[in-house]
Structure formats: structure tokens, C-alpha cells
Design a protein around this nucleic acid. Structure first.
Lengths: 198, 198
DNA sequence: TATATATCGATATAGTTATACCGATATCAA
DNA sequence: TTGATATCGGTATAACTATATCGATATATA
């Protein structure tokens, strides 16, 4: 277990806070208010903020600008992150052109595929030797995903965002985040069916 | 709280089991074996399976075909689910053409947009009156997401899969699953940076 | 300046989720 | 047929996460 271990749920809440705070720049906000907006417990929010912020003032709350900066520092949004993406099908294309990553200073530097329209996959090696890549995004068909993954690992990439519906085999020090769209949607439908049946 | 409440984490494991079991059809498998393959605790897997299966045999484990059927029954994969998607940008397109939903008997029946290439958004009303739609998928820009959401809700849709980076305002009986790609990637990078720093 | 109060932040409690343990049982091997 | 054993499934325990409680404090108000 890591020293500064925080739970996944905690990490998922932080961007929510940041997005909401955007609306209250040049102002103060209390943990109670923020909690009510996001439908979270006030103590939960206060404890989350205590972990990453300089602290708030009694009766007033947190200085929003300062808090946003603390969040950005904590999450690393003030530092540029570099990604490459492999597999330029429809999904790869969508991600490659998605503008939402800019907000977090994440940049997809290059797109690879076997098609001529993109940098060829066998150029990954050269490209990675000149750049320090933080994340490899895998959007190839599932039968090629492990090969692509191995290629990325051989270039020293330690984090994989995997959209192929298979579990990748990686060493212990590599982090894989699987984004299985079909699984996610099916779980949503399961929830919905359970609620309807009460 | 619902009667048959199960945790989100539990629901996320079920498709993993199903995908893995695919490889062991016409065979038996023990919870221990399955757990080791997926890097989960054996007791956890056994308890999960106990919730949804007819049961396994001591010394042998579970009949894979039967177990798969139990999982499909439980998750509703044996019943057809219907979805529509609104917003035919790159991401909408990718989802609309994604073949992975078939495995779970989920069908995206129609795609809407303001562009002429697709059914116009103002036809959603007519379309929904003739079909019982389980899920609405929102892939429009964030400034239009709430409007589209309201439109879907007015047609009786009770589950929303939202890719727009905002929190939608919905009544209590509607389930929203947010799929914020930028947030997800930023969290992956945070994890990676924490690990590297040890 | 003195008092009331909203909020913070720390500690204690509750609730939820995962793990450990153990008797029962069906199968395999002798 | 008999004994050894792997696995199941239930109960007990531990770990983790969220909530409740409360004294301290900075601000606003009188």
C-alpha cells in the first residue's frame, strides 16, 4: 500500500469539486454549500478538502480561487501530461479530437494506426524515445490490444487507458484503467431495471 | 434503499466473470481458480457467485455453462434492451457503430442530431412514442446536454448515459451515469504520478 | 467592544465492503 | 468401499469509508 493512499472514490470527487468551483471564482464557499450542490455529505466534503487544501475559515468557508489552485496542484493539473493513442477507428478518432483534456493539461501528442493516414505503429518506438509519455491509450480491436500494450510497455510507459474489452497482462508497476463501454452500459441498464421493479 | 441492493463494485465484477468464463465453456471452474485469474479474493468471488448462481459443487466448482446462464439472467442479458443516442459528433458516431453492445443484447435503435445526415432531434418525440426505450445516450456538447436530457425525460426515459461534462438535473427516479472521459484520464494520470513518486 | 453564529477540523461512531475461518459435502484415489 | 481433500456456503472478523458529534475560532452584528 502506498504512503499517501487515498481511495478511488475520493479521487473521483475531486474533479467534481473543481468543475463546480469554476462557477464561484472570486468568492468564498463553505463545505456545506458545496456538499448541498453536489448532493454529498458536508462532512465528507470537508474531509476531502482538508486533505488537499490550505484550509478554510470558520463562518466563511474556503477562498475559491485558492481552493481551485490547491486542487489543481494536488491532481497535477498544473503540470503538462503527455499521451499517445493507438488505434484510429471511430473511438480513437473521437478521443484524439476531444477537447476536454486540455482543461487538465493533458495532451495527446500523436495518433498511431496501421492505416496510412496516421503515424504507423512501428514508429511508436522512435517517437517514445524522444518524448516522455505518461499514458498510452489503447483503442485497437481486442485481438491486437495485448500486442500494442506490450509495445507500449517496452517503451517505458507505465499507465494504460484501455478501451479494448480484454484484461491486459502487465507487470505490477504498470497501472491499467479499463474503460469497457459495453460493460458500463449494461450495468446502467441493470440498475434501471432493478429500480423499475422496485 | 432498494430491497435487493447490491453494491456498484459487485455489479462491475459480474461482466468480468462472464467474459472470463467464455473461455471455459463445457467445463467446470472453482471460485478459487476464477479469483486467481482475475486477481480477486477467492471468498469475494464465491460470495458474488452465491448471490446469482444455482450453486457449485464441492471439490469441483461451478458448471461454467450454467453459471454463465445464471449471470446472463441476473444481468438481464437475455432480454433485449433498447437505446437511442443524441449527438452524432465523433463520439456519438463511435458509440452508435460500436459492436460490443450486441453481446449484452443492447441495441441502439436510432441516432439523432441537428445535422441532416441523421434523424432530427425534434423527431425524438414521435420515435419514443412507438418504442419503449430503456436508455438515452447523450453525446451532445455540454451547453445542450440539459435540454436534450429534459427532452428524453419528457418521453419517459428513466436512464441516461451522459458523456457531456456536466451534472444533469433529473428527478429522483431517473438514473444518470456520467462518463466523463477527461476526469477519468486525469485520475489515471494522478494514480500513475503517485506510484512513480512512491 | 462584546456577543452570537456559521463553519472548520478533530475525534468518535456507524455503516458498508472485503476477508478469514470453519463445518459440511461431493468427488477422487487407494 | 473407504479415506483424503478441494471446494462450497455460512458465520465471524477485519478493513475501509462515510457520517455524526463537538469544541475552537474567525467573522458579523449589536
Amino acid at each position: 500500500m502506498l504512503q499517501n493512499y487515498v481511495s478511488e472514490a475520493f479521487l473521483e470527487r475531486i474533479p467534481l469539486y473543481l468543475n463546480e468551483l469554476e462557477k464561484y471564482k472570486n468568492d468564498y464557499i463553505s463545505s456545506t454549500t458545496l456538499a448541498n450542490i453536489l448532493n454529498l455529505g458536508e462532512v465528507l466534503v470537508r474531509k476531502d478538502l482538508a486533505k488537499i487544501s490550505q484550509g478554510g475559515k470558520p463562518k466563511i468557508g474556503y477562498h475559491v480561487m485558492d481552493l481551485m489552485n490547491d486542487i489543481k496542484d494536488y491532481m497535477g493539473y498544473n503540470n503538462k501530461s503527455k499521451a499517445i493513442i493507438v488505434g484510429m477507428g471511430r473511438l480513437g478518432n473521437a478521443l484524439y479530437h476531444y477537447s476536454g483534456f486540455n482543461k487538465y493539461n493533458i495532451h495527446i501528442l500523436e495518433a498511431f494506426d496501421i492505416l496510412d493516414d496516421y503515424k504507423n505503429i512501428n514508429e511508436i518506438k522512435d517517437f517514445c524515445s524522444e518524448q516522455d509519455i505518461d499514458v498510452g491509450i489503447i483503442t485497437v480491436p481486442k485481438d491486437q490490444a495485448q500486442n500494442v500494450c506490450n509495445l507500449l510497455l517496452s517503451q517505458g510507459i507505465k499507465a494504460i487507458w484501455n478501451f479494448a474489452p480484454i484484461r491486459l497482462n502487465v507487470p505490477e508497476d504498470v497501472i491499467v484503467q479499463n474503460e469497457n463501454l459495453a460493460d458500463s452500459l449494461s450495468i446502467l441498464i441493470k440498475h434501471k431495471n432493478d429500480v423499475v421493479r422496485k
